[in-house]
């Protein structure tokens, strides 16, 4: 009898051990083809001669796709310092074949405006020194990038602190990961020279915020920085295909009481269509995967129809409902 129980217990433990795999993430920090080193002189694609004295950013591991398209949310935020080797444990889960990982650089909007001082010091979102929090918005710096630019003499300090809910983008990378006993590691290469692609650093900009260079910076993180070790690129959800999505509003102008037809050139999964009046109040909002959306009974006036996904605006059209 006793033997039997021991045997059963053994079976259960071994099954558990097989089904539960530890999922890690490893990031190889790079500057071009070289390993990332603080204060190394380097050049971006515009030929700006610079170095990096600080590079920290928040990386949210959104989800993994595995075993035939199953999507499992991970929802874990990591504070990455490019000068420190990154090998973090994400979760333990039941996984055999890893297919894709979905990431976002930044902190998701629902966490972005919380009080950091309520968290224990070890938490990635607790106050940090140097700070990763942005005061009066308030919200986190998604990326804090600082260094010297040598394009001018004497050389100058530059700072790129990028943030903003509207710049929180998802990006997906196909990878099988690396398996070892009871463990699977998502291994990514991150080339930070790509993050300053097309950003002119020659005059030592101090860009803190969510527009222009900062938006560009986060788009670069989305589209170019990360590749899998197999060499697969990252595919931003707000990628080129979606960027090219066309939206038309018909008829325009519409007369009072007439149905307004909003047509997308491609289908989009869970896109948000919202219509705002000129005062900025939302008069219509829907989340749809359909190509055509009809809206009726809008009051006469001028409206702006916006298509967005995950907070990022993809396309917008102005239209008029006349009397």
């Amino acid at each position: 009898m006793k033997k039997y129980i021991v045997f059963t217990a053994l079976i259960i433990t071994s099954t558990l051990a097989f089904s539960q795999t530890q999922l890690d993430i490893k990031i190889n920090h790079k500057l071009g083809s070289n390993a990332f080193t603080l204060n190394d002189t380097c050049y971006n694609n515009l030929g700006n001669k610079i170095n990096l004295s600080r590079l920290e950013y928040y990386l949210t591991v959104v989800s993994v796709t595995h075993d035939g398209g199953t999507i499992t949310p991970i929802d874990k935020v990591l504070l990455i310092n490019a000068n420190v080797a990154t090998l973090d444990s994400l979760t333990t889960m039941s996984i055999t074949n890893l297919e894709k990982v979905t990431l976002a650089v930044g902190v998701k909007p629902s966490l972005n405006h919380n009080d950091p001082s309520l968290l224990p010091a070890s938490h990635p979102l607790a106050p940090k020194s140097p700070s990763m929090h942005w005061g009066w918005t308030p919200g986190y710096r998604f990326v804090a990038m600082e260094g010297r630019t040598f394009a001018v003499t004497p050389d100058r300090q530059y700072e790129i602190h990028s943030l903003g809910d509207l710049n929180y983008f998802h990006t997906t990378i196909s990878t099988a990961g690396i398996s070892s006993t009871g463990k699977k590691t998502i291994e990514l290469n991150a080339d930070y020279l790509e993050s300053i692609r097309d950003i002119d650093l020659s005059n030592g900009p101090l860009d803190h915020g969510e527009i222009r260079n900062n938006k560009k910076n986060l788009e670069n993180f989305r589209d170019f920085v990360f590749t899998s070790i197999e060499g697969n690129p990252s595919v931003g959800l707000n990628n080129i295909a979606i960027d090219n999505i066309k939206m038309s509003v018909f008829p325009n102008p519409a007369s009072k009481g007439e149905n307004v037809k909003i047509t997308l050139s491609e289908t989009i999964n869970d896109g948000t269509i919202s219509i705002t009046d000129l005062k900025g109040s939302i008069v219509f909002k829907t989340i749809t995967s359909e190509k055509v959306t009809e809206v009726n009974h809008l009051k006469p006036g001028i409206y702006i129809c916006t298509l967005s996904k995950n907070g990022a605006s993809l396309s917008s059209r102005k239209f008029v409902v006349s009397n």
């Binding site: 009072k256 008069v283 219509f284 009051k299």
Partner: peptide, 8 residues
């Protein structure tokens, strides 16, 4: 509320 009263 959503449509208003359609008053010109």
């Amino acid at each position: 509320r959503n449509t208003g009263l359609f008053l010109t």
